[in-house]
């Protein structure tokens, strides 16, 4: 029982950066904009969060700085693809390249700094309770932030007027424009939100999960987050399922290794990727699932002619 609880906690901890980044990207894509620069925004968020934490001593100011930095990078992307209608795929990839360079550059003086970071909760009397203690009261605070964000986005997208507008803009910017919504402003908002989420995901890595800064420390998690949005067929709760699947299978293969399972480690390391593909294939068999959810205008530029 104890081991099972521990596994859940570890899986959530591993899934959180994927969840945060993918949720932000989901909102961006729901508004019809494809931003492939998640990796770059995560790294920039990670380094800025770390620097802010070193400078101010406050990890939460660090998280805020990470969010602002992620949004800042997203703003560059926004100007390119929204105002200047540049190609979204290429701009996103360029943003990743830029973010990798920018973060490495900004962090040069901070590679040797050490921060205390954000520790998992430890509430006297509660965290030590059997089973529910570690599950409900023993996670890293940012894990709760990610879960709250998940619920909030699910609710916002599907239960509020604002969500309806975002989805309408993603489905048919022309119609939304005709009704009188400012498509570009709404898309800017969603792009910035996506960047902020990626920034917080980076902050989770540099302040909570592995409190440090070193170049490229996200090691490709931004790309996995992008894939998870597709995996989730643009539905928030499925992002959680995907992140847990990916993080969980990675952990499971480590568990198998530590238990002495005699399989080549590279074969085991393939498992998270294989599992994601297989599950995606299975859920995609129902054609209506994907067709209903993929934002129809995804990746297409829009310029109001008014």
């Amino acid at each position: 029982m104890d081991t099972a609880v521990q596994l859940v906690v570890l899986t959530l901890a591993a899934a959180t950066p994927l969840l945060l980044a993918a949720l932000g990207e989901l909102v961006t894509e729901r508004s019809g904009v494809l931003n492939l620069g998640v990796e770059g925004m995560m790294l920039t968020g990670a380094v800025c969060a770390f620097i802010a934490c070193v400078k101010t001593g406050s990890p939460w100011l660090g998280v805020a700085a990470g969010a602002v930095a992620g949004a800042g990078l997203a703003a560059i992307f926004g100007v390119l693809v929204l105002t200047l209608t540049a190609n979204q795929v290429a701009s996103g990839l360029a943003l990743s390249l830029f973010g990798v360079g920018l973060s490495a550059f900004a962090g040069l003086d901070y590679v040797s700094a050490v921060v205390d970071g954000i520790r998992p909760l430890a509430i006297p009397g509660l965290t030590t309770l059997p089973v529910v203690g570690p599950l409900l009261f023993g996670q890293n605070p940012l894990v709760y932030v990610a879960l709250v964000l998940l619920v909030a986005i699910q609710w916002m997208l599907h239960r509020t007027h604002a969500g309806l507008v975002v989805r309408a803009v993603g489905e048919s910017p022309e119609s939304a424009d005709a009704i009188g919504y400012n498509v570009l402003a709404i898309r800017y908002g969603c792009v910035l939100f996506g960047g902020a989420c990626a920034g917080v995901a980076g902050a989770y890595l540099s302040l909570a999960y592995t409190p440090m800064w070193s170049e490229n420390m996200t090691a490709g998690r931004g790309w996995i987050a992008l894939a998870l949005v597709v995996f989730a067929t643009w539905k928030p709760w499925r992002v959680l399922a995907g992140a847990v699947l990916f993080g969980g299978v990675t952990l499971a293969q480590f568990q198998a290794q530590a238990a002495g399972v005699d399989v080549e480690p590279q074969l085991l390391a393939m498992l998270p990727y294989v599992a994601t593909i297989v599950v995606l294939a299975i859920i995609s068999r129902n054609p209506m699932l994907i067709l209903r959810n993929a934002p129809a205008s995804l990746g297409r530029p829009f310029r109001p002619d008014r």
Binding site: Q6, L7, L10, A219, F254, Q255, Q257, A258
Partner: peptide, 25 residues
């Protein structure tokens, strides 16, 4: 001694997961 292979020279997140796994075992 229990060994876990990460199949990567540098991936702080994965190394953290491998370490967590070993501690849990």
């Amino acid at each position: 001694v229990k060994v876990v292979w990460t199949s990567s020279w540098y991936d702080p997140g994965k190394e953290r997961q491998a370490a967590d796994t070993l501690i849990s075992q």
